[in-house]
Design a protein around this nucleic acid. Structure first.
Lengths: 278, 278
DNA sequence: TTAATAGTGTCTCTGAGACACTATGTG
DNA sequence: CACATAGTGTCTCAGAGACACTATTAA
C-alpha cells in the first residue's frame, strides 16, 4: 500500500485498464475500488461508531383509509408513559438488522395487523425536543389501506379515527383526529404535525401519481374512486372530467362485471393496472 | 394518581371543563395533559433511552446548482477511510443538540462555505449495509444554490461536479458525477442513489412549486430561468409558453433594469417574489 | 447595416368544466 | 311505471405549442 501517495495524484476519474504485467497490476491495485477493500478492512476493524453520541430512531406509520367519504387514520391510545392516554401513530424503534422500510412493514403487521399494503416513506422528524424521553428522531411512513381490511384487526386500545383537516388545498399544517362522537382526540408528541404532512403529501400526489386505488378494494366503481379523491382533497371534484381523466390515464381496466345489489343502474367495476413506472 | 383506572374509562376525547370545586379539580387532573406532567416526570427520571441499540444518524447535503446549462453538485473527495479517494456528498453526524435542519445548515456552512440558501429535506436512507462502518442512516437534504456563490469557497479536495442523469422525465435511478474532463467520478456509499432521488424530486417540483429561482442570482432574465429549467429537466422547453406561464404565475416581478454587456438586445431583469405559501 | 436575441400577436389543438341527454338497474 | 344513478355527446373556455412578426442593442 505504498502507492497511496501516487495513487492520489492519479487523474481524477481515470478508469483502471485490464492489465497482466506486474507493474500494471500494481497500478490497478491503486484504483479506489481495490484500495478500499484492503485499507477499509483494517480501518473498520479498529473503528467503533458507537463511541459517538447517537439519537434513537423511531419509525412511525400513518395508516390512512377512507370511510364514509372521510379520511381516517389508525391511532393507538398509549397505555404506558410518557403521554399515557394520548393517541399516537403506530410506531416503534428501529432494529439494527432491518431497513427503515422493513421496520415500517413490521410495525404495520404487528401493531395494525396489516400486510401487503401500499407503503411509502413520508418524512423524517427531528426536532430536538419532539420526544420527552430524549433525543428521538422519527422516520414517518404512509400506508394507504382499503378500509375493509381494518375490520376486526384493531386492538382494543386502537381506533380508526376520522381526520379533521382544517386547511384547504395543499396549504399544510397540523391535523386533528376525532373519535366516533366527533370529539377531538389528544394526540401524542408531534403526531398532529406528522398527520398534517401526510395529508398534504397525499393531496399533492393525487394529481400526478397513480395513488388512490390503494384506498379501495381490488375492484371498484368510478364513483367509489371519485369519492376517495374527494375525501382526500376535502372538496368535490367534477364528475365528467374525473371520469374522462381516469379512463384516459390507462391506469384502469374494466372487469366486465358490474356492482351488485344497488337500487339503481349498476356501474362497471374496474381494476387498477400497476404501471411499469411504479 | 389513584384515578388512573377511572380516568382511563373516561369518554374518549372528552374535554376538561374549567372547574373550581375540589372534586372537579381532581377530575380535571385526570385530563391527559395534566396527568402527563406528573406521571411523566417520574417515569422519565427513571427512563434511559440509551439502553437500547441505536443506529448512527448522518445528515448529507445535496448542494445542486446549474452551470453552463448543466446540473452540478458539490462533492468531496474522501481523504480518510472508509472509501478514501471516492467522492461523497458533504455530510456528517447529527449532534444531539441540533435539529436535522440545523445540522444541514451547519454542514453546508462548514463544509461548503454557504449560508442562507434554499434547503429542504429530501429523504432518509436506511439500508442496513449502506455504510461499511456499521448501521448508519442518512437523512438527505437538498440545497439549491446560485452557481456564482460557489466561487472560491470550495476546499481543495472538493469540486462542483457535473451530473450525468441517464434517465428521461421523472423515471428515477442512480445518477453519476463527472469531473471537468467528463470522466465519471467514483461515488462513495449510496450517494449515486441519493443524487438520483434529489434530481428526480427537483424535476417533479419544478412543475408546481416555486422552485428554480434559488439556482439563479437575485436578478435574472427569463432566458436564464428557462435555461435552469432545461438543465433540471434535461430537455428543452417551449420558449413562448414558458414565458407566459412564468409571467402569469405572479412569482416574478420586473425590476425595470436590463441586463448589461450583451451583444444583442438586453432582456428585462426579474426578481423572485416569495409567496406567502412558501 | 447586420447579427442576435427580446418580446408580442395570433392561430390551433387539447383537456377541463358544464350541461343535456340516453341507458339500465330496482321497487 | 317512477326513481336513481351510470354513462355519452357536445359546447365553451383556458392554457400550451407553434410560428410569424416587430423591437432593440452591439459591432
Amino acid at each position: 500500500m505504498t502507492l497511496r501517495g501516487n495513487s492520489k495524484k492519479r487523474a481524477v476519474g481515470e478508469r483502471p485498464q485490464r492489465a497482466s504485467s506486474r507493474t500494471e497490476r500494481v497500478a490497478r491495485a491503486a484504483d479506489p475500488a481495490d484500495v478500499d477493500d484492503d485499507e477499509d478492512r483494517r480501518f473498520l476493524a479498529a473503528y467503533d461508531l458507537t463511541r459517538y453520541p447517537r439519537p434513537s430512531v423511531a419509525v412511525d406509520v400513518v395508516a390512512l383509509t377512507v370511510e364514509g367519504g372521510r379520511l381516517h387514520a389508525a391511532l393507538y391510545e398509549r397505555t404506558e408513559p410518557p403521554q399515557r392516554e394520548r393517541f399516537a401513530l403506530p410506531g416503534g424503534f428501529l432494529r439494527m438488522d432491518e431497513s427503515l422500510h422493513d421496520a415500517a412493514v413490521r410495525l404495520l403487521r404487528d401493531k395494525v395487523g396489516l400486510e401487503r399494503v401500499f407503503l411509502e416513506q413520508l418524512q423524517t422528524f427531528g426536532d430536538v425536543h419532539r420526544d420527552p424521553r430524549g433525543r428521538v428522531i422519527a422516520v414517518a411512513y404512509v400506508a394507504l389501506v382499503d378500509s375493509a381490511r381494518f375490520r376486526g384487526r384493531m386492538m382494543p386500545n386502537a381506533q380508526v379515527a376520522r381526520l379533521d383537516v382544517p386547511w384547504p388545498s395543499e396549504t399544510g399544517g397540523p391535523v386533528s383526529a376525532l373519535d366516533a362522537a366527533g370529539s377531538p382526540l389528544s394526540l401524542a408528541f408531534d403526531h398532529a404535525d406528522i398527520l398534517g404532512v401526510a395529508v398534504k403529501r397525499l393531496r399533492n400526489r393525487l394529481d400526478d401519481a397513480p395513488v388512490g386505488f390503494q384506498l379501495l378494494p381490488h375492484e371498484f366503481t368510478l364513483r367509489q374512486l371519485q369519492e376517495v379523491h374527494e375525501a382526500v382533497r376535502g372538496e368535490s371534484v367534477n364528475k365528467d372530467s374525473f371520469r374522462r381523466r381516469m379512463l384516459a390515464s390507462g391506469l384502469l381496466v374494466a372487469t366486465g362485471s358490474r356492482e351488485q345489489a344497488v337500487i339503481h343502474r349498476p356501474a362497471e367495476l374496474y381494476r387498477f393496472v400497476r404501471t411499469s413506472a411504479v
